[in-house]
């Protein structure tokens, strides 16, 4: 029997803790859904080919380039974007204080990647963990300082 023309199924997922339903084709990029359907424009597009990391979000807690994730893969999963990170999060504060953000275009993705680092990351761990996120402004040194400052604050606050 010939396949009947069907409208694509709605995609349900959790974004920043809220259940959302999206009516878009399954191969649409998660990046476009976030930016255009959900108006979460904090997630940035820098290259569209998974090289720059500006579009990094957390998918079930793992950092991914949302330009490489088709919407269908997000079905039933949990997405966190920069808007889902509290404004007073130590990483956000430290990026401002240490100069980890300059033009700001890589910053949301960089912070999302930094959220996945170990709690007390060594410099080598920071470098390895952020190697998929390009920054053209800072030369990364200020980002290392910000990440390490935030880590020491978080641990200081928790203990």
């Amino acid at each position: 029997m010939a396949a009947r023309k069907r409208t694509p199924p709605l995609v349900e997922m959790t974004v920043n803790g809220e259940a959302v339903t999206v009516d878009r084709a399954p191969m649409v990029r998660l990046l476009d859904v976030l930016r255009e359907d959900l108006h979460l424009t904090g997630t940035k597009e820098g290259c569209g080919e998974g090289e720059c990391g500006a579009c990094t979000v957390l998918l079930d807690g793992e950092p991914v380039c949302s330009c490489l994730v088709p919407l269908a893969q997000a079905r039933g999963r949990e997405v966190v974007t920069i808007e889902g990170v509290p404004a007073d999060h130590p990483l956000k504060r430290a990026f401002v204080e240490e100069g980890g953000a300059q033009c700001g275009m890589c910053t949301p993705g960089m912070i999302m990647a930094a959220l996945s680092l170990p709690a007390r990351p060594s410099l080598d761990a920071v470098r390895a963990g952020l190697a998929g996120n390009l920054c053209r402004c800072t030369g990364y040194e200020a980002i290392y300082r910000a990440v390490q400052k935030a880590a020491s604050e978080r641990i200081g606050g928790a203990e």
Binding site: I82, G104, P108
Partner: peptide, 21 residues
């Protein structure tokens, strides 16, 4: 003094509005 950059909070929060936004 190293005053924190005034455009910092908007940038780290994803609220800064670039042309494609």
């Amino acid at each position: 003094l190293s005053v924190p950059r005034v455009d910092g909070p908007a940038k780290v929060g994803g609220m800064a509005c670039y042309v494609d936004d």
